[in-house]
Simulated scan of single mutants.
Amino acid sequence: MTTTEMPDLRESLRAAGLRATEQRVAVLQALSSQPHADAAGVLAAVTPTLPDTSVQAVYGILGALTDAGLVRRIEPAGSPARYELRIGDNHHHIVCSNCGAIGDVDCAVGHAPCLTPSSTSGFTITTAEVTYWGLCPDCAAGPVA
């Protein structure tokens, strides 16, 4: 899902078995404009149009959207959970170790799960989650904090 058109967002919610509430639509719109947002960032984006929205409501909506498969939750080490609309392609992430900026990285090699472990210990591998760390262009150009 990459569009912010209201009918499409509402239809996506309904197709996932969720009611298309104003708050859910607003959260999806926030994630569309702010990939890799945390709950506080989503709340800040939703509050101007829905000022009565609470942080608990945002967490509940993000959980429901994640459970329904409309949103992906990522958890880079040392960072709050982040949420994105890019789902279903087993992409990876790169995180700036200075400022925390996050970017997407397509599959490292081949098809999902992108990596072949030396041993599966009997597991059937369905996804691989890789986090690359480094400095974003802005931080690489300036002094490291």
Results as ranks from 00 to 15, higher is better:
L31V: 09
D67T: 11
S33P: 05
R24K: 11
A68R: 04
P51T: 03
R10E: 11
L31D: 03
A68Y: 07
T53H: 01
L13R: 00
H36M: 14
A16D: 00
Q23V: 15
L28R: 00
H36V: 08
A40E: 15
L50K: 06
L9F: 04
D52K: 14
R24C: 08
Q29S: 09
L31Y: 02
V46R: 06
V42H: 05
D67A: 15
S33W: 01
T21Y: 00
G17C: 13
L18I: 01
G41S: 08
P48G: 05
T47H: 05
A64S: 14
A37W: 06
G41I: 01
V46H: 03
T21F: 02
E5V: 10
D38P: 00
A20L: 12
S33D: 15
L70M: 11
R10L: 09
L28V: 02
L31C: 06
P35K: 03
T53V: 15
L43M: 04
T4A: 14
G69E: 05
Y59L: 05
T21A: 13
L18A: 13
T3G: 15
A37C: 12
V55P: 12
G60V: 02
A57Y: 01
A37S: 15
T66E: 14
L65C: 08
R10F: 03
D67Q: 14
R19Q: 14
T47L: 12
